[in-house]
Design a protein around this nucleic acid. Structure first.
Lengths: 126, 126
DNA sequence: TGGAGTTAGTTGGTAATACGAACTATCTCT
DNA sequence: AGAGATAGTTCGTATTACCAACTAACTCCA
């Protein structure tokens, strides 16, 4: 499988997974973007700007996004000890719990498509 | 690699690709959702409801989304010949051109991460 | 070492995105 | 023929997202 074929398959897989994430997010009163935030914070504690870069969003977009999730008790801010301008973002226990619950739903939703997805991303595809 | 491990890797890969798509969309004055629409319409001609289901969005969200893209000449609506309630959506030539241009940008942006992504999705990962 | 130039994050203004509820038109099925 | 279901739109509201402008803090070199 050529690199271009692999990347096309990956992008198609991404569209499929993103559709699933969007639907599961909506069912849990979360936007796709918020879901992405939780997925990233699951095992990271980035600064606001790093989070924005990873999401591909402007940092000004992050303020409101973080505000609303913080108001719901799902994540929190903390001053970065090395740079007093910087703000670290991380999941609260409630946020961690929610994230694991969401992941379980996503895994369940993806299971029926698993074989097809695996095949589409592996070498021996025409 | 277990199914759960594969799905976790796939979701992480999705987050990464989605970040790239978001950034490239923004650079071309397109939202992530519009980009997803183009990626789906690339080789399909679904009804509005089918498109909504694939995106994981409510059908009421589609109207405005399609309106704005149609106003920009990137996609078009057509009455479904078999069901007069239904509306088919498809890319215009300009939309096709833009989509191919975007795909080229995405492939280029993903190239540096290719080996890592491939490895993360393949069997022999710890 | 002091200040010019960067960088981190927020705020405010505007447009796009997204949902649910309510509506019209059409289809299905008995 | 008509009751109920389905396809799509419209409307009202909240969220998401950009840019420009701003403050605070950091860099670094002259």
């Amino acid at each position: 499988m050529s690199s271009d074929d692999f990347m096309d398959a990956l992008v198609q897989a991404t569209f499929h997974v993103t559709g699933v994430l969007t639907r599961i997010g909506a069912e849990n009163d979360l936007s796709l973007t918020q879901l992405r935030v939780f997925g990233i914070l699951r095992d990271r504690r980035p600064r606001v700007t790093e989070l924005a870069a990873y999401l591909g969003l402007d940092k000004s977009t992050m303020s409101g996004l973080i505000d609303r999730a913080e108001r719901r008790g799902l994540l929190a801010r903390d001053k970065n000890p090395h740079d007093r301008r910087a703000v670290d973002v991380f999941l609260t226990p409630a946020g961690h719990e929610l994230t694991e619950r969401l992941y379980a739903q996503v895994r369940e939703a993806l299971t029926p498509d698993l074989d097809r997805l695996r095949a589409s991303l592996h070498e021996n595809t025409p």
